[in-house]
Design a protein around this nucleic acid. Structure first.
Lengths: 338, 338
DNA sequence: CTGAAAGCGCTTACAG
DNA sequence: CTGAAAGCGCTTACAG
């Protein structure tokens, strides 16, 4: 059916190996031969068979991307990480196998042990991530986007959520706020082991304590009416709060509507600081100062490191955790306390 | 490195073909032999090499999913289609190659002609979709999610946006509305050839005309401040409008905040009807009556048909367009005109 | 019920 | 600068 390298060789009047070398550029080919081969390729519309090439070279030029769209999660947030991973992979000649199996452990085992991919990008990493076990036995290198306690031996990229909390608290402290409400990710994120939840919360609590600031953390929700209920409860529990910190995608997305409904103006009645990316803020028209989460940078650096480790492990260095430093993007949603 | 079928055969004391047949079940194997083979497989941790299998069988068990995250589009909406495609594919034993290249035509050509995949799922289909040309030359079958003018020869699945418009207009007409504003997708969707934009709009205009109802269509935006500006302009141009139809994801997501800010109550001051899915409405807490877009059903049916066409083309029947009938989900955001 | 062998379409030492 | 041949790890007619 489709043309093979043998067809090209025959039409061009050369051997199959010469065609192969012309394709890869791994040895010198005379100008004339190269031209004949190219003509044959064009005439036949030849493209190398990926499976055959993978078999011969033991590499597929495919990366596995492992993620799950949790029923109870705010899907748009996940997408921010998929996009840069996909783009960066293609820039380096890799395609992406998107693996979303409910059985995450087996999905990793299945795809790595069958040699479908050259490397693994793990999204949605949890503190005790059960996928790391099969991953240690896999011949392919892997990179984690997120943080796992048992992640030693792997490259990991994550935002420094502790630092994110500190810069937000510092910012509010500088403005004189002494009573702050924090909305954290929902309970199921903690239960699942999403360490960003408590890393941010604990650092915020500790930093506030150092300033002698009252800061009360409340678990938010990812759906209505829970989002509204948790905000109601949090604000009721801190009637004199002057600032609201939100580390919860669904809540921050719903916040403009919520505050409007309650008749609260930002920053006049309440200072607000979030934790989200530039693009996220734009998609949801969020006018809030925030710690930037830089999913683009995370995804890009993670994939680059993975590809480095695939091609030249020595250059890649020792696998380690890299925490990206967050920056505070001031959108004017905070003001000094009178 | 990794165990091969030859290793299994040696350990089990049988031939490679017997191991292969034990794996595939394509011929009878004695109980005893089967046991020995299974023991060897377990001992060695053997998984068949996907590339080798693909080369031998000429099938990869991978489907290509082609999409693009447009800079100017509302990403969350796209995700609704990715998820059911991914889930349904896995249920049938297929993995998903996610292809997001900026050069869409070449991406199709590259992946189909290198035999990386067994079938194609095209998302983001436009009226004159340039990817259909390479697709016609591809040996793999394809399914389109969306509608293309030049889509003959392919299975296509799309919502019947014309019917969606009619049931919405009918609903409002029944309630006595005589002056309606419609927010359509942004201009760039029309320019790109997103036929759902004008299919909905034209049907709405026509249906309204039949009732003698005033209905004015305005292009919406996908970002702030354009979203607010277009709503402002649309409502200003129809000062006596009693109902708002929104066929624009970014706009409907921003609508609660917008209407709150303008101090308009739904449905007391304005009846509102949207066009979005159940999950989308839930993710964004949208309290609006809407024509359900059923991305789950679309994605699932599309993939099933594609897999049917891969396995038994005769059963799959003639390729044709299937328009899914929308239903109106009443969430109480409309009321009779006094 | 089982085996030996050819073949899928590439790449890459080996040889000249 | 080029070719003949082995090999990657499977599947599947062919044979018994």
């Amino acid at each position: 059916m489709a043309a093979t390298i043998g067809d090209v060789a025959r039409v061009a009047g050369v051997s199959r190996s010469t065609v192969s070398y012309a394709l890869s550029g791994k040895r010198a080919i005379s100008e004339e031969t190269r031209t004949r081969i190219q003509a044959a390729i064009d005439e036949l519309g030849f493209t190398p068979n990926a499976g055959a090439r993978a078999l011969a070279t033991a590499q597929t030029n495919v990366l596995g991307l492992y993620l799950q769209f949790q029923e109870d999660e705010f899907a748009p947030a996940m997408l921010q990480y998929v996009l840069p991973v996909s783009t960066t992979a293609r820039e380096h000649g890799y395609d992406l196998l998107m693996v979303t199996d409910a059985d995450r452990v087996n999905a990793v085992r299945r795809t790595t042990s069958s040699a479908m991919i050259d490397g693994v990008v793990l999204l949605d990493v949890t503190y005790d991530d059960s996928r790391l076990e099969p991953l240690r036995e896999a011949p392919q290198p892997a990179v984690l986007i997120g943080y796992a306690r048992n992640g030693e031996g792997f490259d990991s990229y994550d935002l420094d959520f502790g630092e994110a909390a500190r810069i937000v608290v510092d910012h509010l402290a500088d403005l004189g706020h002494r009573d702050i409400v924090l909305i954290t990710p929902p309970r199921h994120v903690y239960e699942r082991g999403g360490s960003y939840a408590w890393r941010f919360r604990d650092a915020a609590v500790e930093r506030a304590a150092r300033y002698g600031i009252r800061l009360v953390a409340h678990e938010g929700d990812s759906r209505q009416p829970g989002i509204t209920d948790s905000l109601d409860a949090a604000l009721a529990a801190s009637p004199h709060a002057t600032a609201l910190m939100v580390h919860n995608d669904a809540t921050i997305a719903a916040l403009p509507a919520y505050l409007d409904k309650r008749g609260m103006r930002v920053p006049d009645d309440l200072s607000v600081v979030g934790v989200f990316s530039q693009e996220f803020g734009q998609a949801f028209s969020l006018p809030y100062t925030a710690a930037e989460t830089s999913p683009d940078r995370l995804g890009q650096e993670a994939v680059r490191q993975l590809i480095r480790r695939i091609h030249s492990p020595e250059e890649a260095g020792e696998p380690r955790v890299r925490f990206i430093e967050p920056e505070l993007v001031d959108r004017g949603s905070t003001r000094p306390v009178a």
